[in-house]
Amino acid sequence: MTTEKEKLQGIVKELIANALDAGATEIQASVKIEADKTVITVKDNGSGMNEKEIKNALKVLHQIRRDEIEDYYGILAGNSLMASGLNLVGMLVDDAVVESGSEGTVITVIRLHK
């Protein structure tokens, strides 16, 4: 079983891999664990996203959370040769916000505690 700690680690690793792929030289990650939810924010100074890329990112991040698969497949988040990107993250979180311009991106994801 993939533990809650492993799932959170996986989400952070995937978001950081995403920032590195964008050529970021400075990455700030914050994980805030609250009573009812965990909020993860990763901010980078990478190449940023255009509108189409933001739309695509939100499309995968806004998938329905798949709690029937996260205990089994969730271990793959952050543990894949070709980072599965935001696809797995989308299955593990309940909400996401992407802010990006010509330089830098901020991705915030929220995972509710069930």
């Binding site: 079983m1 993939t2 205990d71 543990n79 040769l81």
Partner: peptide, 15 residues
């Protein structure tokens, strides 16, 4: 099955 299946995913990383 459950613990082993979960563990072995990492071996091939989903391929």
């Amino acid at each position: 099955i459950p613990p082993l299946a979960n563990h072995l995913l990492i071996v091939h990383e989903g391929y």
